[in-house]
Amino acid sequence: MSRFDITHGRGAQSAQVPQRFGLAARVADGDWLDERETVDDGAPKLRTTVTEEAARSIISRNTSPDIPFDRSINAYRGCEHGCIYCFARPTHAYHDLSPGLDFETKLFAKPNAAELLRAELGRKSYRPAPIAMGTNTDPYQPIEGRYGITRQILEVCLEARHPVTITTKSDRVLRDIDLLGEMAKLTLVAVGISVTSLDPRLSMLLEPRASSPAKRMSALGKLVQAGVPVHVSIAPVIPSITDEFIEGILEGAAAVGVTSASWIMLRLPHEVAPLFREWLAAHYPDRAGKVMSIVQSVRSGKDNDANFFSRMKPQGVWADLFRTRFRLATRRLGMNEARLELDSTQFRRPAVGGQMQLF
């Protein structure tokens, strides 16, 4: 292998621009090399850059029949966690950027997110329902430590008594445990932490800049102790790579008081499929064929199923096996898939322009 065959410290192995939009292919040139930090005789290292954007709106709406929410907030575009399997990677292509390395190194932040949220919640036409955070990119990825946008959003939601759900792979969520605790008392928040494996080395390959599995399991317990409703998500289950950890993750979560759990089968939409194949070739060449054979067996012979109603419901022998293992383990541990129903009835429009709204 050449020194560029494996990109250390990142999930993706390449930065090719997708061809489905007719964009010009990217090749390694001087500009690309300038973006790499090198050390004597060491592997090249990519720098992370953050572009601040002045967003015009902050609440995204959807009508998908496959997901349990109709609105979401993403304070950041791209995600430094670098999870190779992330289904959100293709969204970077809309910026003429690579769903590969660009997605995890060329990030965008929305510093005006809380201000926009305050304005949107203040509209007379707005009707409250839980806002999902972490549905596209992680609200607690490393740059949240610098920007604090997620915390600002939570502060507005607490003021407005607006319900929020959070999904993350980071124990950085504990930084906001004061706000989450206050919101939990009002039935305004539920937190889901995604745990993919219990092997720190594997985690570093799959999701190189996410919190270690041990830190995520610890965060689950600390949230439980703080009275915050918490859910463990085994997402995704990757056959012949992470499926061996299904029972162990559930047992560890149950041991710290978590009573709600779910699992999601690996999905490989658009450019995620070739990126994942590259990752397999770099790190697990001995089982790459087996992994993709199983993936295709649960997706009607394809790398991915993009159809509504079926895309989140893998079929076949392997899917049935994972589903049965999950069901038996949760039954034995007294866990369930039910999530807390959050309260939207307490909503009050937040102060806009320094003045509280009475109605």
Rank of each mutant, 00 (worst) to 15 (best):
K215L: 11
T330R: 14
L220S: 04
R209I: 02
T105L: 00
A132L: 10
A253D: 12
A190N: 11
D199G: 04
V295Q: 02
L186S: 12
T150L: 05
L116S: 05
N62E: 06
T150F: 08
D102V: 00
E155C: 09
D102M: 02
S211I: 08
D199I: 04
E35L: 13
R56P: 12
A25D: 05
M265P: 07
T38Y: 15
E104V: 00
S240R: 13
P111I: 07
D171E: 15
E120P: 12
A129M: 09
R89K: 13
H283S: 08
R327N: 14
G30W: 06
G334Q: 11
R161T: 08
T49R: 15
H8M: 09
S211L: 06
S310T: 15
L23F: 14
V237D: 00
A210G: 09
A109Y: 06
A338H: 14
R175N: 08
S218K: 13
N112L: 07
L342W: 11
A338V: 11
L33P: 06
R151Q: 10
S233N: 14
R10P: 03
F322Q: 14
I143P: 04
Q346L: 15
Q141G: 06
L205C: 10
P208C: 01
D303G: 02
S64V: 05
A255E: 14
I131F: 06
P229V: 02
A261N: 12
K169C: 06
F309G: 01
D29K: 07
H81A: 00
S211R: 01
E37Y: 08
T259F: 02
I234E: 01
M292S: 02
P350A: 09
S64A: 08
N307H: 13
K124C: 05
N307V: 10
I73V: 14
M204C: 08
A132Q: 15
Y85G: 03
I131G: 09
G148D: 10
V291L: 01
M312T: 08
Q296L: 05
A24E: 13
P68K: 01
C157P: 10
R332W: 09
K106N: 13
P163I: 11
R47C: 06
R47W: 05
P239K: 00
L340C: 10
C157F: 06
A28M: 15
A253I: 12
W318D: 10
G353S: 03
G192Q: 10
G192V: 04
I153N: 02
M265D: 12
